[in-house]
Computed example of a mutant assay.
Amino acid sequence: MRKALYIFGLLNDADMELLAALGRVRTVPAGAVLIAQSQQLDRLYVLLDGHMEVAVSGIGTVATLGSGEILGEMSFVDSSPTSATVQALDDVRLLDLPRSALEARFAADPGFGMRFFRAVAVFLAERMRNTTARLGYGKDEPMPAGMLEDELDDGLLDNVGIAGERFARLVRLLAER
């Protein structure tokens, strides 16, 4: 749910309603591949219920994702082919957000586009910091005073409760359709 905390914490309530209106709920059965590594992806997904496995060719499973995770964000940002395969571990429900619908909305509402891309950028920056730390880069540089290695940013912590409520609201809005 960590991705959702970054993204939903930086969006506003109206943005959540907009995401619900732009996307469609989709069910993926257990064992089905949602995203194949190296494919072109023209959408973004929000995992509403269930679990998915992320695997990279030659490496194996790199993550298991649950409710609230965002899928396809890297390919959404740079339009590159996907870097991993994502497969349903059980029956999952997700919000399918087509790139064309989101891009049309970004053009009509630049404020929404700014908030959306800032949220994705903050998440990707944090992921990069954690990855480089795990690989041993920057070991000679001290952590900021009072900060633990995998601690969330203070600005994000302020929005954790709000982000969780926004995700719950998104799920409720989608259930009403």
Rank of each mutant, 00 (worst) to 15 (best):
S80Q: 14
L124S: 04
R177Y: 06
L44M: 07
K3H: 13
I7E: 03
E151K: 05
Q87S: 15
G111E: 07
R26I: 02
A32W: 03
M52Q: 11
G58S: 03
L173K: 04
D150R: 15
L71W: 01
L170W: 02
G113F: 01
G68K: 02
P29K: 15
L47G: 09
Q40R: 05
L11R: 01
Y6W: 04
G164P: 01
G58A: 05
V160K: 00
A121T: 08
L10M: 11
T64D: 10
R177I: 14
F123W: 10
T85S: 15
A133C: 02
V33A: 06
I59F: 04
G72F: 11
A63C: 08
L124Y: 02
A133F: 13
G9K: 05
A125W: 04
R172C: 10
T132R: 06
I7K: 10
Y45F: 09
D49M: 09
R134N: 07
G161W: 03
G113K: 11
G164F: 03
R115M: 09
A104P: 00
M143P: 06
L173R: 07
R127W: 01
D150W: 12
D158A: 14
F123I: 05
D78I: 07
E141M: 13
R129M: 07
M74I: 15
R115Y: 06
V46E: 01
Q37M: 07
L47R: 10
V120N: 05
D42A: 09
L152P: 14
Y45H: 06
Q37L: 05
L71Y: 01
F123G: 00
N130K: 03
T85A: 12
